[in-house]
Write a protein that binds this DNA or RNA. Structure first.
Lengths: 204, 204
DNA sequence: GTTAGCATGTAAGGAGTTACATGATTTT
DNA sequence: AAAATCATGTAACTCCTTACATGCTAAC
């Protein structure tokens, strides 16, 4: 009653973001979602199609008419969706909401994937929010560590060490991104395609 | 109908594992679960207590009688649970099941946390299974990459690069763990408390 | 004596999966 | 013409969270 839904926010944001670039049908959307959702996650159709229906009902997306003139003869069944004007507006609103909700693991990834459509101001607020979220976790993990370490065997300790290290690594990554945002004067261009970020060498 | 539940397998395994070490009550269990579940995850009581009830119903855990003689006077309400004989058995069965289910993110963490109670054989099968799971992901990500890279802007590309790098890093971590398991002759001792694994310096 | 934290629990519902059901289109 | 893959969709169910409800105990 109080929190009022936040309706499948992550998936909806990802779908709106992908449709912002070009109209797509469900099957193709699902394939592309893995690239935008973090960690190679895959969404099932049982999740995607109800989500699309909901977006249509709220007027944020609509069925795109088939581009070619050959209307009913060729490819039927395939339903291509596109963003409506309100959908574009709503996407910007969602993307610009740099609150705590945007700092959790999954949500952050999706926001990040669409940074190209956000202002530098929004990007910085989200990156910094994410960073303090992670630092909170590190604090909590380190604070409770005395008691925990006493009962930890070698494997539990190793698991926690690995978790801490991964989180610290992500904080450093965020630091680099924030630095880049602050120093780079221009909005990111599409031309290069290769990542302009430091540490982009896949260190091996 | 077909798959037949696999009842909250991760949480149940974690609870059984923690109770394997010592009897605990729900409140305390929840605190410790964060250490054993991956990535600082926290479980809600609405999840934990029904889980405990289910474990009692199936006879794997039971209420421990209060240790002291002062039965009804002192601390009431606090219900301490302990593993039954069947519970111990069941835990070993679950832990030893080194199938694909043990290779996913959350499940792997919990299995790993209780490696101290598993045989080296089981540990190796799980570590190797996890590794090939991750390598599958890397393959998939690299295979579909040509098409994906063309439409990726700088941020999407950076997100994917970071995901790939993290996964590659975990593979290297697994390689070290496997190497350690193969060379170290003894079962891990509880004495040292500090992790005996390579790379244990929290490199900064 | 009242606030803060310990401790247990339930009801409602959100978010997503699996498994099923169906049909069109392309490849072999 | 059979097999594979593209494509859409639903029903049932699982897992988990949020919000609520309750009471005990320790500290101030």
């Amino acid at each position: 009653m109080a929190t009022q839904s936040r309706r499948a926010a992550v998936l909806e944001l990802a779908v709106l973001g992908l449709l912002h670039e070009q109209p797509l049908h469900g099957y193709e959307l699902r394939k592309r979602l893995s690239g935008v959702l973090g960690a190679f996650r895959v969404v099932s159709y049982g999740s995607l199609y109800p989500c699309l229906r909901g977006l249509v009902e709220r007027g944020w997306i609509g069925e795109a008419p088939p581009a070619s003139s050959s209307a009913s003869t060729s490819k039927r069944a395939r339903i291509t969706y596109e963003l409506t004007a309100e959908g574009k507006e709503h996407f910007q609103t969602l993307l610009g909401q740099a609150g705590p909700a945007a700092w959790e693991d999954d949500t952050f990834d999706v926001h990040f994937a669409f940074f190209g459509r956000a202002s530098r101001d929004v990007r910085l607020r989200i990156l910094e929010g994410r960073r303090s979220r992670l630092e909170e976790r590190l604090d909590a993990a380190r604070t409770g560590s005395r008691e925990r370490r006493e009962r930890a065997d070698a494997y539990t300790a190793e698991l926690q060490r690995h978790g801490l290290e991964s989180t610290e690594r992500e904080v450093r990554w965020l630091n680099e991104l924030i630095e880049t945002e602050l120093t780079a004067p221009a909005e990111p261009t599409d031309s290069g395609a290769r990542s302009p970020y430091p540490g982009a060498t896949t260190a091996n």
